[in-house]
Every structure is written in C-alpha cells, then in structure tokens.
Design a protein around this nucleic acid. Structure first.
Length: 264
DNA sequence: GTCCCAC
DNA sequence: GTGGGACAACGCCCA
DNA sequence: TGGGCG
C-alpha cells in the first residue's frame, strides 16, 4: 500500500470509537498525532495554506491505524511536486441496481481508450460497487491539463453511449447508467488508496460483486505476504502500469482530439 | 486523543 | 482537579 | 446561493 500512498497528501476516514461511534474525514494534521505521521503544506483553492497529512513510511500508516483510521484517501500528486500530478482517476460509478458486468464493460472500454491514446492504466475495485481506472503519469502536465483531459474523456463516453454513460453527477442523469466521475482529478480532491480498507462492515478492500475477498485482493497485489495457494501471485497491475508510464503530452491530446471528433 | 469549559 | 462534550474537510457541479 | 456528492 505504501508504494501508492507514501509521500503524498492523504485524507483519513477515522472511526476511533469503533463501528458504533462517529465517523469523520480528516485531511488536516491535528495535535496528538503520532510522530511518525508527517505534514505537508498545501495551498487551498481559497489561497489559504494548511498542513495536510502525509505518510512517509509503514510506521506512519501503523500510527494512523492506531488512531482508528479505516480508510486512506490519496491526492493525485506527490509532496515533491504538488503541481504535477502523477496519477489520474476515472471513478466508474454504477447506478443502484446496475449489474457489475456493466461496470466491467465500462472499465474495459476506458482501458481501450487509454491504450489508444498511448497511456497505460490499471483497473481497481474500490471495495464499494465501483471501479477506478487509474492512469499513472509521468509528471509533465499540470492540474489544468489533467482536469480538462478527464472531463473531455468522460463527456466523450457520454456522447458515444448516452444510454449507458453519464458525465454528470446528478442523480436524475444516472438512472440505469454508469457515472464516469472525472472530478477526482483536482488539486484538493482525493481517491481511495489502493489496498485501503473501507469503513464498512467486514472492512472490505474488494467488493463481493466480483467475488474477490479482501484476502484475495492482497494476494493479487504482489505483497510480500503470500497465501499458501499457488497461482495467486501476480504483479500488482498498477505498479506494472506505472513503470515507464508516459505523461499527458501534446501527442496524447491530439489523439484525444481525433477520438472526440470520431464521436461528434 | 486533546482541548477547554463548567463545576 | 476532573468530568464531559466538542472536535477532527473540501470544493466542485448543477438546480 | 445552496444542496448533493464523494
């Protein structure tokens, strides 16, 4: 998990009093935090500066757990270049009651497009009903570019198959469709970290809808902890995709233009 | 977990 | 001094 | 401007 979550601003979902207690989302570092947990100064949209939480190493993650942390949500940029995101996320969020098969189909189509645009990517089940398609990026473009790219892709999907996709968050537009949430790609936005638990009963990592338990999720990652059964070990798809990942270049944006024109 | 106020 | 309650986000889109 | 959303 730390290969994904270390050295970037994070937000925590904490339930320090257990399942029956309150639950809160915390992005600013607070007093009484363990020494192992670090802070990183971030300028918010309002212009205000605030100290955000960051986890330098496994000890910090352990410290977070000690404070009742269930979920870790990560920013799209690392501490050493907060203005140059190294990942982009499409959150594929199905309407209530939509078959998981539809989400998988959406993820496949998104993967196809990313490959066509020369980008690499990997799918991730979120532990809820959705799938994140994560696109690791060389840090050549800023947030503005990223956001515009994500929006264009989501709207392109909607235009191509308006009966199956929507790029609009509103409940009404989502009926029977997969909402492609492109809004996770902003300076202050976060997305659930790979391998984070979820603050739900049984603390899943992966949803039941694809039949994979959280133990199975760990096995899938290439973690140093390995289950006995052979054949489960595979390289973490996202880490594989990150190796030599390209950035959002002029060429990528041109390819996107072509795709958009096709569907116009 | 910590701070702060009321008692 | 101590018991107890409050507190621990942000920013977007769209109506 | 406020509500919904994640």
């Amino acid at each position: 998990m730390m290969q994904h979550a270390a050295d970037r601003p994070v937000a925590l979902v904490r339930m320090p009093s257990g399942l029956d207690g309150q639950r809160f989302f915390q992005r600013h570092a607070g007093k009484g935090f363990p020494d192992a947990i670090g802070t990183v100064r971030l300028t918010e949209a309002s212009g205000r500066e605030a100290d955000y939480i960051t986890l330098p190493d496994a000890a910090a993650l352990l410290g977070a757990g000690q404070m009742g942390t269930l979920e870790v949500h990560i920013h799209g940029a690392r501490n050493d270049r907060l203005d140059r995101p190294d990942r982009l996320v499409f959150d594929l969020d199905p309407d209530e009651g939509l078959a998981f098969e539809e989400v998988k189909r959406a993820a496949r189509e998104m993967g196809d497009l990313m490959r066509r645009l020369g980008l690499s990517c990997a799918p991730m089940v979120t532990g809820g009903k959705g799938v994140h398609v994560v696109v690791p990026l060389r840090r050549v473009a800023g947030w503005e570019t990223l956001r515009g790219f994500a929006q264009a892709v989501a709207q392109g999907f909607e235009r191509r198959a308006p009966d199956r996709y929507t790029a609009t968050m509103s409940k009404a537009r989502r009926e029977g469709r997969v909402f492609i949430d492109w809004l996770r790609n902003d300076t202050a936005a976060t997305a659930i970290s790979p391998y984070s638990l979820r603050a739900r009963l049984m603390a899943p990592v992966a949803s039941r809808s694809n039949g994979r338990s959280w133990i199975g999720s760990i096995a899938r990652t290439g973690s140093t902890w390995r289950p006995r059964r052979r054949g489960w070990m595979q390289p973490a798809p996202l880490l594989e995709a990150s190796k030599g990942a390209p950035g959002l270049s002029e060429r990528t944006l041109d390819a996107l233009e072509d795709w958009l024109e096709e569907s116009a």
